[in-house]
Structure formats: structure tokens, C-alpha cells
Nucleic acid binder design. Structure first.
Lengths: 228, 228
DNA sequence: TGTAACACGTGATCC
DNA sequence: TGGATCACGTGTTAC
């Protein structure tokens, strides 16, 4: 049976912290299996203790590295102790969150959630004059506009107006669309709506967009604009 | 709890964790000076150790309280270990900072620094048609607009245009001003400029504004607007 | 002098 | 088991 850390294998008088214990294997051994087990136990115990304390040191270092990164991000946080630093971080995050929340109340700022919605803006469903409101929110990337334009053209739609906002690598857009001059007179708005949803979803929510995550960071914020 | 601190005074068999030790003073003492020294030393040692470990516990609790506050602020940070949580906080802060920085590139968003600047917008300094551009940035508060309006009237100025942005309890404004119909024809623009700076500074940068810090939180963000 | 902050090694606990 | 995380009490240093 293998030894363990259990104290039942050790006499009460044995102090594992005393160096003499390490020398036990050198002296004649009347109970070889137990003695050898003692030696192995001691070695394994030391090794375990060392790896434990090393792992704990690595953990502390990881935490402290993040703390010092945070310290660089928060102005005037030099000389603060850990708790005060974290307190400042809490305030900072709350403040920044509040500001971005205020802004998104007024501006059409993108969220972190990919989505596409299509609605009718008026009742007459089977009419060329019908307006569709198409919204999307997704990661931004350079090709997005040309892909959208092509898709809209292919569906024989015309952009009557648009409100686009890009922020932090995300983009949100609202398009006002209606059938264009190439569109059939008897176009079925319901199926057009479905097609539009499919096409927009493919462009905006396709998993391949994640490839552009880094690239999209260079997109800048811009105010609501018209796109046609 | 170890007794190494005073091991030279204590026999190996003495366990400081046993209550009997605390009762030593009650029993007959054959070596009074040594016993008393032991007692005092031991008591002081225990008290010091206790207060040390209690202080350390308070410190840990302070840090952990901030960490759990942060955990509430960061979505999906449940179940993260401390280092991962702090990593998420770093990302979050960077992200929010980037977003607000992007926005302030385009919008005239207020900074954390109080300031007032006055400039001429054209060369003709001694003319009623001269435009002054007055900017300020300070804590927002309800009375600010009426105070500004009164000051501008008192200086016999007229607001030709303004761009005001309020965000996170701070407000930044840029005013286009020119002498109004009540102004003297030979008004000295240089002294007008000085007076305007003094008055605006009193309104915007006066230390009393700090009283309104809380109140000003209810001010909301609004887009650049015209104020006259 | 004691108070505060930090790093350290260890025991406990959880997969 | 072994690896990882956490709370704890302690030694150390600075003011």
C-alpha cells in the first residue's frame, strides 16, 4: 500500500520539520517497507510543498500583474493600496458605464448583441411605395457597406434614408427601404421582408464576421449619417 | 499558531494553544521574575499576533469587497477566479475608455478639467461686430444657464450661437458672443474679454460649484444645441 | 512605537 | 490523485 500524507504512518514524536528526519534512510532499517515509504513520503511531501508554494506564487503574480495594469489605466492611482485602487476602479467603471449609457439614450449606439430586425413602416403590404425599416447591429468591418449595398440592389430595393453609428468596433444601422424602379409591380412585401432578413442576417450575423474582429477596430465613431 | 517567537523562553512541550498556559499567573510562582516576564511577554505577543491577524483579515475583506463589487459590474464574471475577473475588468475599462474617447473626438464632450477660454474670432478688436468665442468646462448644475445668461446680459453681449454638451454630470459649452445693441460703440474688446473671463471663471470654476456635484447628476446628456 | 500594507507558505476545498 | 483557488496567520518593511 502506498503511503499518504496521513499521520497514522508517522510516530507522534516525529517532527517532519526537523532535518534529522531526512537522514532516516541512511540508518539501518528494520522495517524496510515502512522506512522506504517514509523516505518517499518525505521527498514527495517536500516536492508537493514546493510546487504548492510555487503555484501560489504564480497565482499571486497573475493577480498583481492585473492590478498593476489597472493602476496604469486609472489616473492618480499611484501610491494607492490595493483596496483603494480597486475602489477607484469601481468608481471609474461606474462612471464610464453611466456616460456610455447616457450617450446611447440619445445616439443610436450599437450594443454587444448581434441582431437584425425588419418592420413595415406602413400598412399597404403589396405596394411598391411601401417602406421597410431594416435594423442591424454587428461587428464592424470594411466590406460591410459594399456588401449591404449589393444585397439591397439585388433585392431591387432603394435606400430612402439611413442612420448608421459605429462605436468601439461595433456598428448599428437603420435603413429605410422601398422597392426601386426595377422591382415588379406586384412584388410580395412579405416574401421581400423574409428575403431581406435572410440576406441581412448572412451579412451581419454570419459567424465569418468574427474573422474581422481585429481589423474592425480601426473603424471610427461617426455621427448618424445618410447612406444611399 | 507557532510559539517560535519566544521559543528560548518556553520549553518545547509548552503548547501556547492550550488554555492552561493562560492560567499560569494563577498558580504559585517559583521564579516570579521569569514567570512575570513570560506572562507579560507572552500576553503582549498573543495580543500583538491577534491584532495583526485581525488587521490582516480586515485588509483582505476590504479587497474582497471591492472585488465582489467589480464582479457585479462586469457581466459574465460569475465563476471567474480573481485573476480572470481582474483581466475582464482591464478589458472592460479599456473598452469603455476607447468608446468615450471615440465619442469625444466627434462630439464636444466635457472633460474632467475645469477651464475657461476666451478668444477673438476675427481681427477687428474695437468693433461692435467683433465675435468672441468663449468656452468653459465645469460641473453641471441647474442654475448654470441662468447665471450664464445674466452674466452675458450684464456684459451687454448677445449669444450668436452656442454648442453645449452635458455628460456624466459635467458640462462643456462654447458660446459665440458679440456686443449687443446696449453696448457702447467704443467698447474695448480687450477689457471686455478680461471681464468675460473673470465672470465665466466665477460661474464655472468657483469652488462653491462642488456643492452641486450630487444635484448635477440628474442633468442628462444632450446633443449640441443652440442657446440664445 | 504601533499601525498599515505586502508577500509568503500552508491547510482546506473543489474538480 | 494532482492541479488550482482561496483564506489564513505570519514575517517584514515603512512611516
Amino acid at each position: 500500500m502506498e503511503n499518504s500524507f496521513c499521520s497514522e504512518y508517522w510516530p507522534e514524536t516525529c517532527d517532519v520539520n526537523q532535518d534529522s528526519v531526512y537522514l532516516l534512510p541512511q540508518v539501518p532499517c528494520y522495517f524496510p517497507q515502512i522506512q522506504c515509504s517514509h523516505e518517499s513520503f518525505q521527498e514527495r511531501r517536500e516536492s508537493a510543498s514546493r510546487s504548492h508554494s510555487e503555484a501560489e506564487k504564480r497565482r499571486r503574480d497573475r493577480i498583481n500583474a492585473q492590478l498593476s495594469t489597472l493602476r496604469k489605466l486609472i489616473p492618480t492611482s499611484e501610491k494607492m493600496d490595493k483596496a483603494a485602487l480597486l475602489g477607484s476602479v469601481v468608481d471609474h467603471v461606474k462612471d464610464l458605464k453611466g456616460k456610455t449609457a447616457e450617450i446611447s439614450k440619445v445616439l443610436n449606439t450599437p450594443t454587444d448583441i448581434d441582431e437584425v430586425t425588419i418592420e413595415h413602416l406602413n400598412e399597404e403590404e403589396e405596394n411598391k411605395g411601401c417602406l421597410l425599416k431594416a435594423s442591424f447591429c454587428c461587428d464592424d468591418r470594411p466590406e460591410l457597406f459594399s456588401e449591404l449595398q449589393r444585397a439591397i440592389n439585388n433585392l431591387k430595393l432603394r435606400v430612402m434614408g439611413a442612420d448608421i453609428t459605429s462605436l468601439g468596433g461595433r456598428i448599428k444601422g437603420v435603413f429605410m427601404l422601398c422597392p426601386n424602379e426595377n422591382s415588379a409591380n406586384d412584388v410580395c412585401m412579405s416574401s421581400l421582408k423574409r428575403s431581406l432578413r435572410v440576406v441581412l442576417s448572412r451579412i451581419a450575423i454570419s459567424p465569418s464576421t468574427s474573422n474581422y474582429r481585429i481589423k474592425s477596430k480601426r473603424q471610427r465613431f461617426f455621427l448618424p449619417a445618410h447612406f444611399s
